[in-house]
Design a protein around this nucleic acid. Sequence first.
DNA 1: TTACAATGCGCAAACGTTATCTCAAATTTG
DNA 2: CAAATTTGAGATAACGTTTGCGCATTGTAA
Lengths: 341, 341
Amino acid sequence: MRVTIRDVASRAGVSVTTASRALNGEGRMAPATRNRVQEAAKALEYRPNPIAQGLVRKRSFTLGLLTNDTYGRFTLPVAAGVSNAVVDRGVSVLLASYQDDPDLARINLQALQDRQVDGLILAGKRIDRAPHASLLRSGIPTVHVMSACDNDGIAFVPDDAGGARIATQHLLDLGRRKIAHITGPTSFTAARIRAESYIRTLADNGAKPWGDAIYGAWSEQHGFDLALHLYDRKRRADAPDAIFCGNDQIARGMIDGLTQLGVSVPDDVAIVGFDNWEIFAAATRPPLTTIDMGLVELGRQAGLCLLDLIDGQTCASGLTRTPSQLVIRQSCGADRTDIAA
Amino acid sequence: MRVTIRDVASRAGVSVTTASRALNGEGRMAPATRNRVQEAAKALEYRPNPIAQGLVRKRSFTLGLLTNDTYGRFTLPVAAGVSNAVVDRGVSVLLASYQDDPDLARINLQALQDRQVDGLILAGKRIDRAPHASLLRSGIPTVHVMSACDNDGIAFVPDDAGGARIATQHLLDLGRRKIAHITGPTSFTAARIRAESYIRTLADNGAKPWGDAIYGAWSEQHGFDLALHLYDRKRRADAPDAIFCGNDQIARGMIDGLTQLGVSVPDDVAIVGFDNWEIFAAATRPPLTTIDMGLVELGRQAGLCLLDLIDGQTCASGLTRTPSQLVIRQSCGADRTDIAA
DNA sequence: TTACAATGCGCAAACGTTATCTCAAATTTG
DNA sequence: CAAATTTGAGATAACGTTTGCGCATTGTAA
């Protein structure tokens, strides 16, 4: 059988009560006694039983991660971040996935409630869609990740504006001046934010955008088609010398299109993507310089914030945007000798 | 406060003991009494507290899913499958991710053990690598997913041979006869299995492989380079009229290469991929016909098997390969009018 | 001294279940 | 009709913790 607090207590020659208090650092107690208990615990490799603790403390020391992301592209890095952030505080993460299915959402939420999760992380796949309403008023401390929430909610999302700024700035720093922006549908808030930030960054540097931001699908096709259109032989002279793409797929399509037209990347046109979707970004020819949204770190912060929230501390409320980072590969021609592979 | 079994008991006018037995369907009891209790439970929306149950039953009704897959490409579908399979048996899934880091693996395993998970799912990213040794002898019922295990272990992996057979057969059915196979490194068991199955399927149909299976990297580059090589103008006449690619990335590279050479897919060459990595497969031009490994279903089966194992039932031991499925898009020219989009 | 507070620790109850006994009433048996 | 058996259900003790309360013992002020 597992070693219980009873074993620790008897080895230290104290009562169970005292042992408990010694280990939790509570109550008045002779320092010597406390030490004795702690050493006994260490010697026996005692680890408290979270289930028993949960029963009496009415806390389970678990977080529920309820996700809506089918492919795991966003969720798994986030989940890893959450899990790693809280594991050394003795907290574990329950994963449940409802695939846009309200029934499944309800069942899973109920299961998490039954388990008395101390907190809930609701993960989505886009920042302007709120989780299904039934998830919203669970009565459990909740943070949102990669999704919208109501006014008094707490959400962690990537710093779209910052990422766009870094990307645009990078192109400016490389001397490009005719910088275009091609991105997803206007209906996506993330797309609009990135576009606005792109424009503002240019303005801050005394530059003008090359035409309006071009909205469309988040697809390779979109990038590909625009490459063919913008760099059509008739227009090529006036075409951009750099493009900031709203995601890696668009960037990929763009590069493919440019390559097909014989336009050189990065010599003629520098390309920056967004997402750092590794297998995608590394597979373009040339490999794609892009923005990493720092999802693992985002998960970390969401996890820690949730823990604070549970402890009753006031946690950074509202929307927190975790910083993005530029990952330099070869599609912009920047020197990357100072950057680890 | 939550409604407890005490509330149910008093509403039904019985003792707590009787209520418990009535709800668990145990013990001798007047049918009327049992009904009364069950109705009381329903009326109060009673749901038993798994924590309390766990304490006395020495089971936690949780499964631990310990994964090594960093990007979540495989793990999240599997996790969703596991979770959905077990949720209506009152079991939840704890997710932990060690990123090839032995220390993290140890810590996470310990956390799962502390929580007294009833079973463990060890998920990897390739079928010929066993999990870190320290994970192997945890003393907890374990099934492996997408990874190797020792002889008396239980593992669930995709049916590589079946998938390769279906893919090859599909090409044969479409009348192709010069079918090549391009795949990942020989060091990957999955690659070898797929290659062997490809050869066997051809033989079963009285056909011969077009040359040896070509091993290389699991990358687009590999496919791309081979396209340029195989369909070089000098060789094109003898080149394959169909290629079964070992994964979607190779297929993607191959299609890109062929397109660049002006070789038509699927008219001149039919391409089948492997993985059905949605965003990849749907983005090729033309969209890729490929093999879906059924990871969600794999997760389901692994979860149910683990539950059986925990109940002491003898579960299908050894390696279980869950069936793959052909997803028909447009890279083979097959009619797909009978298939839903 | 006497009274009274502080210190150090243990008893016992609680958390919400299930499981092991026990025991009265109802039923069958001889 | 008495004895043996079955039936139905409750009392009580776990499970491993934490926690409110109480009780000695020691130290301090009057």
